[in-house]
Write a protein that binds this DNA or RNA. Structure first.
Lengths: 162, 162
DNA sequence: GTCCCTATACTCGGATAGCAAGTGTCCGAGTATAGGCGG
DNA sequence: CCGCCTATACTCGGACACTTGCTATCCGAGTATAGGGAC
């Protein structure tokens, strides 16, 4: 069980975009430069986020990406699902209905207890991410590393003005 | 994020082994036959479970696998970690300390807030699995599909007597 | 001076290679058993 | 008849190919801009 690196990048990009005025945008190249990650690969994930309706892409010159809705209405889960593709980590293949002791289908009306536990765990995981919004993330970032936040804001202002 | 198929197999095997008397064992081939899965590949996971101290392997003729401790003292998390290798789904690469706005390390004393949320979610996931034991699983299986449980017990008795 | 048209530069978007990890399989090392032999 | 020894058959264990999906990259389609020309 491993998450794509893109999840971390996407979350950081989202916090940066939250600081961009709604009528402006930031290009994939700038976002990649800010985090020092391969821009071509980052672009791939930004596209996925756009398809999911979390980011908005502005084409053409002076284009770029921006949040599709207020940061308070974007959860961490939204971002993770968009990048990872919303596939369940555990998939029950009903092996209890296979082998020499398999019986009629009517014997297995209730879902397999093992899958139930795995799904419960998955839901607990998702709940935590669901109840954390981008604003929560930003509040935390500013409290944890205020100096870095100020430097980031300064850099952003410089990029937007040019 | 995807879990290995072996997780499901391992959990089902564990519930079967829980029904085997402590002084007996069940071979990898028999476990594979019971679930109709490739025995060679299942053996690989059984070895991992043995290394993790959850199963015990009895070598030689009339050997096989059995639980290393009572079913009530084995959690689902133990099995999942043994098969999956206990690697964290999310790994913070501290990209906030990279790029043009990177600052002195003293600015980043506290852990990245993004990683904190991801780890909280992971812990919620693990907690659910941790608080479910093999006995809980078996109780559920027998309640959900009693006929199948009886057939399984009969098959097992036949195999053990021969 | 104002409007329109055209060429341009820059953006996103999807299609294309490379690589690592999971998936699946095999054969060799080790051990309890079963049978035969000797006492 | 009893004990011991040897050969055997069966088990687990680790080493070896293959496939899927993530990682990384590129070039083409589309658009707002900027400049020049006509009115």
């Amino acid at each position: 069980m491993k998450l794509s690196d893109g999840v971390e990048w996407a979350l950081h990009c989202a916090t940066v975009l939250a600081a961009v005025p709604p009528d402006r945008g930031l290009t994939a190249a700038k976002l990649a430069e800010f985090h020092d990650v391969p821009s071509a690969y980052l672009a791939k994930h930004l596209q996925a986020l756009t398809r999911a309706g979390i980011f908005e892409a502005v084409p053409g010159r002076r284009g770029g990406y921006r949040l599709a809705r207020p940061a308070s209405e974007i959860s961490v889960l939204d971002v993770v699902d968009a990048v990872e593709g919303r596939l369940r980590p555990f998939l029950c293949s009903e092996i209890r209905q296979r082998g020499p002791v398999a019986g009629p289908k009517s014997d297995y009306r209730k879902a397999c207890g093992i899958s139930r536990v795995m799904y419960d765990a998955e839901n607990a995981y998702r709940d935590v991410l669901k109840h954390t919004s981008l604003t929560d993330l930003i509040t935390g970032l500013m409290a944890d590393a205020p100096h870095a936040a100020v430097r980031g804001a300064t850099w952003l202002q410089k990029e937007l003005s040019s």
